[in-house]
Amino acid sequence: MRYEMRFLDWSHLQDVVKLQEIVIHNLSDKEIFRTHPPKYFLEHFKMENSIIGVFTNDGLIAYSVLYFPGDRKDSFGIDIGLERDELDKVVHLATVAVHPAYRGNSLQKQMQGIHLDTAMQLGYEHACCMVSPKNRASLQNIFSHGLNIKALKLKFDKRRRYILHRHLLSPRLDCHEEFRIRSSDLDAQIGLLNMGYLGFRMVEMPAGFSISYGRSCN
């Protein structure tokens, strides 16, 4: 597949909104994807290199948003218990959308890798992300970048979401004392998180998948 990946600006707003509509229309479980109004994207366009887009001859076929929450109440740094003076060092790997016809090309993984590099170049230290427990593909991509599940909470629209985190200046966490919990058993996962465990890997199963939880030994 031939494509071009580049940072977007406000002139791409209609393309982004149109792609968002295509993605949500084609999802069998619309609960896993959170839509946003045009003003959400306009706010992010104000920050240089905040939105990456992927183009083919068909136009815009994917985008990824990097969000800088600062000390606002929607910072996932609060959800994982970061100190207040650390919140200005947090970035969110936020909304990602890939056209249904172009899934399976690792576009989400590539875009988020660029955004992590951008965050480190700008001096940020904490990368966070919110993922639905049902969103198998996104969860696998986030794990591949070294983020770990630190919390499982009711978030926007009162939906359960994983909050994942990685300290960008530290080595990737090495976990031991592994427990594998079926992805659908959210109560068991919350229990382990409350005991200080973190989710660090997704394991495929004949029917569904499980999440490996362990304690950091770094």
Rank of each mutant, 00 (worst) to 15 (best):
A207R: 10
L93Y: 08
H145R: 10
D187C: 01
K134V: 00
S132P: 15
L147D: 02
M202I: 11
G104H: 09
E177M: 02
A97F: 08
L93M: 14
A127M: 10
R180M: 08
L168C: 05
L147R: 03
M130P: 03
L116P: 03
H145S: 12
H99T: 03
G196M: 14
R159W: 04
L169M: 11
R201I: 00
K158V: 04
M120T: 06
Y162L: 05
Q189V: 04
T95L: 12
Y162K: 01
G191I: 03
K153Q: 13
V98A: 10
R172L: 03
M205N: 03
S212V: 15
R161S: 08
P100G: 00
L116K: 05
Y124G: 02
V203G: 04
M205A: 11
R201K: 15
A94N: 11
E178F: 07
A119T: 07
R136G: 04
R161C: 09
M120S: 05
P133K: 08
A188H: 13
R180T: 07
G104F: 08
G104T: 01
K158R: 14
G191E: 12
Q110M: 12
V131F: 15
Y102C: 01
R160A: 03
A151H: 06
C129R: 06
N105M: 14
V98E: 05
L164P: 00
F143Q: 09
P100F: 05
K109N: 12
R201C: 04
P171Y: 00
K109H: 10
R180W: 09
M195I: 00
E177Y: 09
S210D: 13
V96Y: 02
T95A: 08
K150T: 07
M205R: 12
D117H: 08
G113L: 04
K155N: 11
K153F: 06
Q121E: 14
R172G: 04
F209I: 00
F179M: 05
T118Y: 11
R166G: 02
G208K: 06
G199L: 12
C175F: 15
V98R: 10
S132R: 14
F200V: 09
S184D: 12
S106H: 15
L193P: 12
S106W: 08
S212A: 15
R161V: 02
P100E: 05
Y213N: 03
C175I: 11
S183M: 06
Q110T: 11
L107C: 02
E204N: 09
M111S: 04
S106M: 08
G199K: 08
P100T: 02
P133Y: 11
R172P: 01
D187R: 14
P206W: 07
L139W: 04
S183T: 00
F209E: 10
P206T: 11
M202W: 02
M130E: 15
N141P: 06
K155W: 13
R172M: 07
A137G: 01
L192C: 13
M130H: 03
F209T: 01
S132I: 13
K158A: 12
N135T: 09
G208H: 09
C128S: 10
M205S: 06
R201G: 00
G104P: 10
L107V: 02
S144E: 14
A188P: 10
D157T: 04
Y162M: 06
R136L: 14
T118L: 12
L164C: 06
R182Q: 13
E178K: 07
V203S: 11
M120L: 11
L154P: 01
D157P: 01
N105T: 00
L139M: 11
R166M: 03
C128G: 02
M111V: 03
L139V: 05
N135W: 15
D117F: 06
E125Q: 15
